[in-house]
Amino acid sequence: MSELAMDTPIDRSAMKVSDEVAIEIRNMNKWYGQFHVLRDINLTVNRGERIVIAGPSGSGKSTLIRCINRLEEHQAGQIIVDGTELTSDLKNIDKIRSEVGMCFQHFNLFPHLTILENCTLAPIWVRKVPRKEAEETAMHFLEKVKIPDQALKYPGQLSGGQQQRVAIARSLCMKPRIMLFDEPTSALDPEMIKEVLDTMIELAQEGMTMLCVTHEMGFARQVANRVIFMDQGQIVEQNEPEEFFNNPRSERTKLFLSQILGH
């Protein structure tokens, strides 16, 4: 799997990390009923960072990034996004959601709307952008993800890879400052994974702050500036990708890496 994204040389020089803090998570805890899904998470993400979160299934990595735009509610600790704390205040939640883009495993495109309408919906209704302007922006981003000619089709008429790229374009139309990816390639056929990863790499090269939950270790190696390994609801290890893959320190990480890279 690691070869998939390896064939295009990547210019890492453009991916600069600034000192400005984009996301800060402090002592965050979350329970599902009795089950302690996230335990004492501390994480600071600076602007321009590309973070890959890896870990076995059920380790809480999806829950972690879903907490960042409050698709899940955390019960203790703080999450501060762009200087705004996520509390039960609806205005803050709406503000953060419109600043943070998200791509889902199953795309979650709106099947009753065309590709173009999917992309213009939120700018028009949340950002109150005039329709014409929203459509221009949408076409711009659809060109960026290389499917402008599909704009008038419905999601059901597109392949999985194309749908995921539309989902990325849909998020970008809100001009987000942070992008969250929740296993964006897990539901895709193997030959479609590359087109989505290429889009994500391009995004990274433009300096987007990204948090990706993914099993694409090739992508992590090339693009990420930090890899976080989670298990049993906690951050077990984090490091730069080279170090992480070549010199894993914790036993859990070694076991995990041997299992997914072993063959």
Binding site: L71, R97, S98, N108, V126, M174
Partner: peptide
């Protein structure tokens, strides 16, 4: 997913 998609875009 449809509810989540709408939420993540900031629709009320």
């Amino acid at each position: 997913g449809q509810y989540e998609g709408a939420d993540s875009l900031g629709l009320d």
